[in-house]
Structure formats: C-alpha cells, structure tokens
Nucleic acid binder design. Structure first.
Lengths: 358, 358
DNA sequence: CCCATCAGAGTAATCGTTTTCCAGCGCCCC
DNA sequence: GGGGCGCTGGAAAACGATTACTCTGATGGG
C-alpha cells in the first residue's frame, strides 16, 4: 500500500498537503539523511546538493515536523513561564518580552498562571508532560518545594529572587534596594518622615522580599520605619484601596506611602481621590514596577522601574545556556537586574498644616 | 546493548528517571499494547489486567510522552489563540478563561500576540509548525487572507465576528447592538442628544464592526449621529485621551461619549479629569468590554459587558467539535455572545447650562 | 602505482507511542 | 464432542525526524 494513498486522486480539493522529509529527498534526488543535514546546516554537505535540497524544500514548502524532531532529539523547544497572575498588567508586559526573546531563539512559550494557590502543582504537571526544556519561575521569590519535581528531572530553571542564599539554581537578582533607596531619599529630601508601605500578599515570597527591601532601605536612609505604617496588601487594586483606607484611619497617618507594586499604588490613589484627598499635595505616593498604566493614571505615578526587557532576556539567556550545555551542571549563575526611580507627579513636599479630614 | 545503559549504576544521583510504556509493560507483565489500551481507556481490556497496569503506572509514576503521542496520532493537543495585543487588559482576562477551558479538555494554549501589524504571518507560521489542532482568532473581526494558510491545511478555526456574511468558518457572533442600544437608550433617557463615539483603529475589523454597531444603534434609538462626533482611536489609553481632547475642542462638544472599549474610555476619563471636567456631571462616559479595571477607576465606569467566559467556552467548544469530527466539514456554526449594559457612575443627565471652559 | 585515509552520502536503527492485524482460547450450539 | 465465532491480548508496523554506522570514491603519500 502506498504511504500516502491517492494523494492527488482522492482529494482534489486539497491542494496543500503536508510534505515530509522523504518527499523532499525524492524530489531533490538525494537521501533523507542529506535533507536532514541540509536543514540542520551540517557543514559536510556538498554545496551543490544543498542547493538542490533547498530548492526542493522551497518548491514543496516543506518544514520539519516538530513532534518527530522533539521525539528523537528529546527536546521540545518549549519554555515554561510561571507567573502568579496573568491578569496583573505587569505580567502581560513581561510575557510579551519573554515571548519575543524565546521566539528569537526558536523556542515557544507555555504560560502557566498559578493564580490563587495550589494550581502550581497542576501547572507544573502540564509543563512536565509537555516536556518543557526549561522553566522561568517569575513568581518573584518562590522556591516552592513543589518545584523539586522539576529539578529531579533536571529541567533547567531560572528564578527571580530567592530567599535561601545557597539556592542551587540560576537566579535573577533584582536589586530592589537600589530603587527603594532612591525613592526613600527622594521622599526624605522632600521632607517626608512618616512613610508608609503597603506590601503584597506575604505568603508570596515576592512580597516578603520587597517588604524586606523597604525596611532595609529605610534603615539605610536613616529613617525609622513605624511598624503601624507597614501593611499587607495583595498586589492588586483592592489591596491598595484597602491598605490606604487603613492608613488614613490611623491617628497619625503617613505623609507618603510606598507600594509594593504599581497596582497597589493605583488602588491607593483611587481611595485617596474617592475621599477627596489630593495627590501629591495631601499625600505622596510611590509605586513599584513601572507598568505601562502608571504613566497614564492621573496624576502620573512616580514609581521604581524594574526593566522587564532585562528580566526576560536574562532569563531566556540563562535557560538556553543550561539547555545547550551537556556537561554536568556547573555552579549557579546570578544575573543582576537593576531598578531605578522614575519621578512623575505623585510626590511633593508634605503639607505642613495637614489634618486628615474625616 | 541495553536500551537504557546502566540506569542504576552510572547515575545514582538521578532518582527520578523517566519511564516509558515498555517499563510499565514489563512491570505489569503485559504487552505494551495492553498498557496503551489501558491508558486510553479502551473498553476491551480485562479489568484484572487493567488493575495490574494501573498499579505499575502508579508505582513508576509513568505518563505518556506527549510528542510520541502527537507524532503517531497526528494531533498535538495544542490550541492556538490569536490576540491583537496581550498588553491590553481585556486579553489577559480572556486568555485566562480560555486557558481554563482548554486545559479542562486536555489541551494546551499557544498564544500569539499579533501586536502591530505583519507579525501575524510569523505568528501563524509558528502555530502551523507546532501543528496546532485549532486556532481561535480573537482579533475581533479579522478574516485576514493570511489565515488562508490555515484553512488550506484544514486547521479548524473559530472567529469573533466577521464582516462577510458567507464566511465558511465557525463564528462567535457578538451581539454588539444589544449592549450598545441599551447604553444609548440609557443615555437618551438621561437627556443626552449629542453623543460622541471614539472607535478603535479602523484597520482592525474589530473596531469597524463596533463602530457600525454604534451607528446602527443610534439610528435604532432614534438619534441622529453627528458625523463630527465619531472619531478614530486605537483601543488604548492614548487613543481615548487624544480622542477626548479632539471632542472637547469642538464648537459643540457632545454631552456623552461612548467608547469602543474600556481602555479608550479610561483614557478619555483621564483627559477629562486632567482638564478639570467632572465626570459624570460635565460629561457622561460609557465604555465597552467591562474589564476588571473599569470597576476600579474613579468614578467606576459605566460600560457594556461582553462575557469573556462565554466567548472562551464557546470558542473552545467550537474548536473541539471540529477537531473531533472526522466527517467532511459541515456547515459553519454560529455562537451568539450577548452583551449588556452595566450602569456604574460615569453617566448622569447632561449639565443644562454647560459651557466648555477653554 | 598501490594502499591508506578521508570526505561525503546513503542505509537503517531509533525515539515512544498508537493501532492494525492475527493468534489463541473459551464458549455456544448443534 | 467438534466446529465456528467472538473476545483478548500480543507482535509489529507505522508516525517523521536524527544520527551512528557503512560504503563508495577520491586523494595523497610512499
């Protein structure tokens, strides 16, 4: 029986059949091995033959079957990307850059949004079953034990921040301190002393680490952080709104508030405006991340920028170097990610005769 | 030579080897065929054997190799999702729901963001090369000729809106008119007569169709649309800001503005606030889509909700039914998607003695 | 001038499944 | 009690690539 029964006869309405490597070989009058070598740019193939093969490839519009390739090579050319919440505007922006970097290298992205909680296990399972060649864990600071399943299988991973200092994986080290310190010095220079902080959800390592960075930067800039001014949010609008409400209820509210991410800051801004406070006159506000939206809220948000391009590119680079390397795993690498203050219009000197209006 | 050389001897530090179907067969004392049948729940396999196989599977933590499966079955269990811009908050929300629906059916998502313009071709190429089993085209109303490459290959597709009435593919028919009409009637009831519209980029079909729906609904609700009040935006904040700026410059600005999507409305809102206009007192504003953010801008945006869950589920359902069906393609199916007005706080009666303050 | 070496192309094994085909076995009915 | 038939389960052929190995012919050195 012919391999492809009656291609031209049974389905005349099917002009675009998909050709395989043997079709190309036949048309070019060479063996499949030569075709494969040509496609993979193995240098030993004769230039004349290569030209014939390439012509056949063009004529037939041939391209290799990904799964067959993956099967024999053992690599899927799929990269997993683990994010906490695709709905948070920070992440689509990151994903976009990540995708760009991956596609440039011939990889595709499998996005896993871990959303609330125990999704992580399912998401990981899906990635393992799809045979991802590497995983970028962008849930800022999550070296979850569940991830061991990956490391057992020697799937390369790259993390953003980790709490353990001896973590045996490649890590993107975000220099939160740098940007935070700049922000605090900026606020201090404006005359602020009572500076609040609305964190993310502290069960997320991401949030914990940013809070630590805030506290450290406070000490470093000579301020003393008032305990009652450090609140927990959820890295979303709601948390920012709720956090700001709580801060305003205090007997001595802060004159400036730094937020663990921009969405929190925007939520806080919303609450201030709803209650008739003017920003920055009545309260200064600083965000973190510099998402696109921050430039467009009113007033435009002063925030600390963390370069997403830098993160995406470093992560892909780290992953690929691990994937390509065949030698036993070498020491973990670290990739510094810088942060810096972007001053817009939500910071000003504190009102001298400020009275909370309740 | 053994198939897996020295598993236990050469790599003692590698506890989690990956097992294949033969390992399971050996351990269960059956043939690989029986294991495969058990895994795929073929009913003819003896219950006792099945139990033995399942035990072996559990013991070894076996799961089938996706690429081998895909290779032999010809299906990748990958669904392509084409969106115009992952950065627009509407789409992450949609993607999330889409992913949920796909994963439930054992499919994975390949997301393609067509961003500016001719990316489309590359994105499609990537999808074809990955052998997607189906593609959902969420670029609202884009039956681009480039997509022919998919239909030639008989890749099932599902669209949101199309302009051609005889389009030979499954289509999600969003009933824009319904929500638009509700919105216009609401505005009319409040006393508005001069109603503006800021569209999306008209090169996108999405935008064109929404504009048509607006104009049709205007006629239907007895209003006459003033030509000068219908502007082109870009479905982003910037377009909304710019559009509102233009409208305010008019000798007779509208008293209410409907926007083609929420981001546009939020941009317009931003401009109004920057210029000291109060919303809704000085100007009423209505968005479209009901993205999460809309509830949290200040004041909360009155908007037309289009159910993303409905879209995602219908799309996946349409795709799967095409993928599963082996019979020659049947007539295109249509899935109605409803829209409805969500009244929040950006609409009010027009100010009687309104003077633009320039 | 002959043999060793090497470059380059072809043959075939392999990756891990699914699935077709076939053999064996028990059962039913005559 | 024997023959046919229906089930079950196994052996083996795909799926479409990569690549180790083999083979052929050419080339260079002794």
């Amino acid at each position: 029986m012919p391999r492809k029964p009656g291609r031209a006869t049974t389905s005349p309405a099917t002009p675009n059949e998909r050709f395989d490597i043997r079709d190309v070989a036949k048309r070019a009058g060479v063996s499949v091995a030569t075709v494969s070598r040509t496609v993979n740019k193995v240098p030993t193939v004769n230039a004349l033959l290569a030209a014939r093969v390439n012509e056949a490839i063009r004529d037939l519009d041939y391209f290799p079957n990904t799964q067959a390739r993956a099967l024999v090579s053992g690599r899927s050319r799929l990269l997993g990307l683990l994010v906490p919440d695709i709905t948070n505007p920070f992440f689509p922006e990151l994903i976009k850059r990540f995708e760009r970097a991956a596609v440039e290298q011939g990889y595709e992205l499998l996005i896993g949004s871990t959303d609330d909680d125990s999704d992580l296990q399912h998401v990981l399972r899906r990635m393992i079953e799809r045979n991802v060649d590497g995983v970028a864990v962008m849930t800022f600071g999550a070296e979850d034990p569940v991830l061991d399943e990956l490391s057992h299988r020697h799937v390369p991973m790259v993390f953003v921040d980790v709490s353990k200092t001896d973590f045996p994986q490649d890590v993107l080290l975000v220099n939160y301190g740098q940007g935070m310190l700049e922000a605090l010095q900026h606020l201090a220079a404006l005359g602020h002393r009572d500076i609040g902080f609305i964190s993310g959800p502290l069960k997320e390592h991401s949030a914990l680490i940013r809070r630590e960075a805030f506290l450290a930067s406070m000490r470093q800039s000579g301020c003393t952080a008032r305990e009652d001014l450090v609140l927990e949010g959820d890295h979303q609008l709601e948390g920012g709104m709720y956090g700001m409400t709580s801060l305003l209820r205090l007997p001595h509210p802060p004159t400036a508030v730094l937020c663990s991410n921009d969405m929190t800051a925007i939520g806080a801004l919303r609450t201030l405006q709803q209650r008739g406070f003017r920003v920055p006159d009545d309260m200064s506000l600083v965000g973190f991340d510099d998402i696109h939206l921050s430039e467009f809220v009113h007033p435009p948000l002063t925030t600390v920028r963390m370069s997403q391009t830098e993160i995406a590119q470093s992560a892909v680079r780290a992953l690929l170097s691990r994937i390509e390397q065949t030698t036993p795993r070498s020491a973990p690498q670290f990739f510094p990610i810088s942060t810096r203050l972007i001053i817009r219009e939500t910071t000003a000197p504190p009102a001298l005769t400020r009275r909370p209006r309740f």
